[in-house]
């Protein structure tokens, strides 16, 4: 139930950003657009979007009284490697779970459908290899 409600909020945020700013709510694209930004006006909405995302868990925490701390599967080096692969992959592929998976799929973009099926498949395979073949991590 909370998964469905949370998902609907993600969708609502994407519709809001398209209706107001005419932009696709793809997080990798929004971040990549800051590296470097094309100008002050373009940078401003991107930075504000990121600030809103960062504030969100604290807002949830202030209402529920407990802040959900994310549980990561490895140390800093492990996560840095994961980050580099995600950064290169999303920049090359032009999107991530939000840009391709939510926004692009809703537009029935062939590129996004192919990308989503691809990253879902390699994600599942990677977890299988790491957890069950190599027996690493949580």
């Amino acid at each position: 139930m909370s998964a469905l409600a949370g998902g609907a909020l993600i969708g609502a945020a994407a519709v809001m950003l398209l209706a107001l700013n005419g932009r696709i709510a793809g997080i990798s694209g929004i971040v990549k657009g800051l590296l470097p930004p094309e100008g002050a006006t373009d940078a401003a909405w991107r930075i504000c979007f990121v600030v809103g995302m960062v504030v969100a868990p604290w807002l949830v925490g202030s209402v529920t009284g407990e802040i959900a701390v994310p549980a990561v599967p490895g140390n800093g080096l492990w996560m840095a490697v994961a980050g580099v692969v995600v950064g290169v992959g999303t920049a090359l592929g032009g999107g991530c779970t939000s840009g391709h998976g939510v926004c692009g799929m809703a537009r029935l973009s062939g590129r996004s459908i192919v990308a989503t099926l691809t990253f879902m498949a390699t994600g599942v395979i990677t977890v299988f290899v790491v957890r069950h073949l190599l027996g690493w991590g949580s």
Partner: peptide, 20 residues
């Protein structure tokens, strides 16, 4: 597109984080 999406999935599977 395909290579990038494949890489992204691998990183997602390693770290459990996508960008958002």
């Amino acid at each position: 597109l395909v290579a990038g999406a494949a890489l992204f999935g691998i990183g997602w599977g390693i770290g459990g984080y996508c960008p958002g």
